[in-house]
Design a protein around this nucleic acid. Structure first.
Length: 469
RNA sequence: GCCCUGAUGGUGUAGUGGCCUAUCAUGCAGCCCUGUCGAGGCUGCGACCCGGGUUCAAAUCCCGGUCGGGGCGCCA
């Protein structure tokens, strides 16, 4: 649950439920107003127990027919689960529950003895997905009803973790001098091969949704911003259908001047180390909530293991050897596919970098040094991936800052340099060597939370067949 | 786009040609009891994805569709 100790009162409540729970002893006898969702409503006689939940905690409200307006009492008593209810009453210590002979009593708990109440919004019945039920619910049904699914404790906890990961990532990059930027998501040209961009109309001009901030963050660095990062959406019109791909996703990107591939790998591993350390130090309560659910479903629980620095580097040439020795069919120059990654992950189950890919497999903007050749003599690039186990988290690299090489790279890939002048012009007046990467936020969250599907950790995922809600 | 697989009450499931006017849990509705606390007890409600076919007989077999799930490809 969220820490609400510093939250101010609002028009609807004097205290959050978390504040009442945490400060119960001091509040005994005091009148408070709270509001929340009705988790259970028990009792059909002259008394009634209303379990309220808000985003900060749970508390029991105790209603007695004699102590309040009878019509209100009856309305609350017959309120459906998940209705929103505001109650006013005095804080009191709860009567202790019955425990078996010889067992110690649990620590004191507090409740609210209600003097007045109001139903703010009545929930329809039955609920399309249970919020507190133990019954398993399929992902598709959950996503159709995400607004209810989010009320479930472990789902709520995963999205709090997501927010924490972004917060810790941001704060770390800022300590290394990176500044946050936003690049346009509506772009004019299908700059890198139009087949995988979503077309749209920008008034009377054909335009596209951006698939990456790549070129723009580079232009920001060329413009002298030195070190930049962006957390923003990217759109890809690929008809993939897997646990790790979406057509709209949030990309965590950085770009830094006077850096090569190794420099930005360092930034990345230090950032991930910081994120994991902070989660381990501050957010075990959220991990516990997720684990409580996993345990109830018979799933393996998770623990936050702060990875050691530096992460292993497995250059492409070595990766090919590992795959070949593992029995995989692969040759220098082939892409390392998912089943190949399984072989590598067997030796390197955690985070590991795969640097120095063949230039032929990398985009035109990746830097290469003519002296860096692979085991079979092929030209290497300064591009790299970061994997966790079999899954790709990041791709990045040092960028080509020599405009003549850049234009040659474009021609080598059958692209017309004329179409890229908005980009290449940035390199004509002095360009610093620079490097960067883009990290899939949801994929990182999958690792942290043990989610088996990227859709679990995206609020309203967009995939091949889902555009709503 | 390819291969495999599936669709049963609101939700999650059992069911492999007649034993199914379909199982169980949860839910919902109602009653009883109760300072309850994973409350408990009782009664009731609610389903075989759509279209075609085979058969004396189809939730069950076949074909098509729609929508899922798994694996892969694609992912400059």
């Amino acid at each position: 649950m969220r820490d609400s100790s510093a939250w101010k009162p609002t028009s609807y409540r004097t205290h959050t439920l978390g504040q009442v729970v945490d400060n119960g002893a001091d509040l005994v006898g005091k009148e408070v107003s709270v509001a929340g969702y009705a988790e259970t409503v028990r009792g059909r006689g002259a008394i009634c127990f209303l379990m309220l939940r808000d985003g900060t905690g749970h508390i029991q409200a105790f209603l007695k027919k004699d102590n309040m307006d009878e019509a209100t009492f009856e309305a609350i008593q017959s309120a459906s689960r998940e209705s929103t209810i505001q109650v006013t009453g005095s804080v009191a210590q709860k009567r202790p529950p019955k425990v078996p002979e010889g067992e110690p009593l649990p620590p004191a708990e507090y409740e609210i003895q209600v003097s007045s109440a109001q139903i703010l919004s009545m929930a329809g019945t039955p609920l399309p997905v249970g919020v507190t039920d133990d019954v398993h619910v399929g992902l598709d049904i959950r996503l159709d009803n995400r607004h209810l699914d989010l009320r479930r404790a472990h789902v709520n906890a995963m999205f709090q973790l997501r927010s924490k990961v972004l917060q810790y990532g941001r704060e770390y990059l800022i300590t290394e001098g990176f500044q946050e930027i936003n690049s346009p998501k509506i772009i004019a040209s299908a700059s890198e091969g139009g087949t995988n961009l979503f077309p749209m109309m920008y008034f009377d001009t054909p335009a596209f949704l951006s698939q990456s901030p790549q070129l723009y963050k580079q232009l920001a660095v060329l413009g002298g911003l030195e070190r930049v990062f962006e957390i923003g959406p990217a759109f890809r019109a690929e008809k993939h259908d897997t646990y790790r791909h979406l057509n709209e996703f949030i990309s965590f990107d950085i770009e830094g001047a006077w850096m090569n591939d190794e420099d930005v790998m360092g930034v990345q591993e230090r950032m991930i180390h910081h994120v994991w350390s902070q989660v381990a130090a501050n957010d075990q309560n959220l991990i516990d909530i997720v684990n409580e659910y996993k345990a109830s479903q018979g799933q393996e629980t998770i623990s936050v293991e702060v990875p050691e620095l530096p992460f292993p580097r497995i250059p492409y040439c070595d990766a090919i050897e590992i795959v070949q020795k593992g029995g995989g069919e692969i040759e220098w120059g082939d892409d390392i596919e998912s089943h190949h990654c399984d072989l590598i992950a067997a030796q390197y189950p955690g985070f590991h970098f795969l640097p120095r890919w063949p230039m032929a497999m990398k985009p035109f903007y990746i830097f290469h040094d003519e002296n860096e050749k692979g085991t079979t003599g092929g030209q290497l690039s300064r591009g790299f991936d970061l994997n966790y186990g079999r899954d790709e988290m990041t791709s990045g690299g040092q960028r080509e800052h020599r405009v003549d090489v850049l234009e040659q790279n474009l021609r080598n890939m059958d692209l017309n340099p004329e179409d890229f002048t908005f980009y290449t012009d940035g390199f004509r007046y002095g360009a610093p060597p620079h490097a960067g990467w883009g990290l899939g936020v949801a994929r990182l969250l999958m690792v942290l939370t043990g989610a088996g599907n990227v859709r679990e950790v995206v609020l309203f995922p967009r995939d091949r067949s889902r555009v709503t809600p």
